[in-house]
Amino acid sequence: MPRIRTFRQELPPLALTAVLLAALVGLYSGDNFTLNILATTFLFAGLATAWNILGGFGGQFSLCHGVFFAEGAYLTANMVLGAGLSPWWSLAPAAGLAAATAVLISWPAFRLRGPFFAIATMTFSEVVLVLANYFESITGGPQGMRVPFRPGWQNMIFTGRIAYAWLMLGFLLLALIVSLVLLRSRLGYYLQAVRDNEAAAEASGIDVLRTKLMAFAISAAVTGVGGSLFVMYVRIVDPPTLLTLSDVGVRFALIALIGGVGTGYGPLFGALLVVPLEAWLRAELGAYAPGSNLVVLGAVLVLAALFFKRGLVGAFQSLPLPARWTGRLART
C-alpha cells in the first residue's frame, strides 16, 4: 500500500509553480495590458482554488461563493472609506466574516444534497444581491462605492500594474497552500471520503456535518480575502459586479471545472485558460456584436462538459506520458 501523501511532498511542485508564475510576471513586467490580465488570472485562480475546497474536495456544488466575495469587498471598502483604516487590516476580518456567514447558512443548506444544495445556495446569492441594492448605507446601493486613488503601500493602491500582479500572485499562493494543506490533512481525507460516499463515511465514524462545515468555512474565508483584494484592485464596486451569478459565483465553479475539479492545481490551470481567453474574446469579438464573446465561451463550456469531463488536468493525465510525470499534478 502506498504511503499517504503529506503536505511535505506537495512543497516541491508548489515551489516550482510559484517560480514559474513569478517568471511569467517578470517576463511581462513592462506590459501593463498583460499584467492586468495576469493579476485577474491569479485572483480568479485563487478564488477558484478556494471554491474547489468545498466544491471539488467536498463535492458540494456551492453557487453562493459570490456572497463571501462581496462580504470581503464591502467590509474592506467600509473600513477604508468609513474608518480610514489601511485595507491590510481588513483582510483577517473579511476572512472571519465570510467564515461566520458560511457557518450560519450551512445549518439549513447542508440538510440538502446535490442539486438542492446548488439551488438553495444560488437563491441565497440572489437574495444577497437584492439586499445589497437595498442597504445603501453599507453597500452604497446601486450607485456602488468608490475607493479614492491614493497610491501607497499602506493603502494597497499602486501606480504600477506590476504591484497588483505580485499581490494577486501572493493571494493565489495563499489559496494554494491552504488548499493543499487541507487536502493532505485528516480533514481533507475525511472530506474526500464524504464526497465519495457519505453513508460509508458516516458509518466509519466521520462527523459528516462538521467536516462539510469546516470545509465551507475555510473555503469562504479565502474567498472573502479575495473580495477584499478585488475591491482595492478595481476601486469601484456595485452589487452586480460582486454578486451577478454568471460573473462571480458560478464563474469560480466553472473555472475549477474546466481546469479539473477536485485536483490541487486544476483551478489554477482553468484560470490560466479561461481568463486570458475571455479577455482575448472580448477584445476580438466584442466589437462585432454584443455578447458574441460570451456565445463562444458558452459553447466552450458545453463542449468542455462533453469532452473534457475531468478538465485540463484530466486531459493531461490521459496523455501517453510516464505516470510519475502526470500523476504528480493531480493525484488526490
Binding site: S246, V250, A253, L254, L257, P290, G291, S292, N293, L294, V295, L297, G298, A299, V300, L301, V302, A304, A305, L306
Partner: peptide, 12 residues
C-alpha cells in the same frame, strides 16, 4: 456545467 453553458450561449 453544460446547462449553464447553454444559458450563456442562448442568452448571448
Amino acid at each position: 456545467f453544460a446547462t449553464f453553458g447553454l444559458l450563456m450561449l442562448l442568452q448571448n
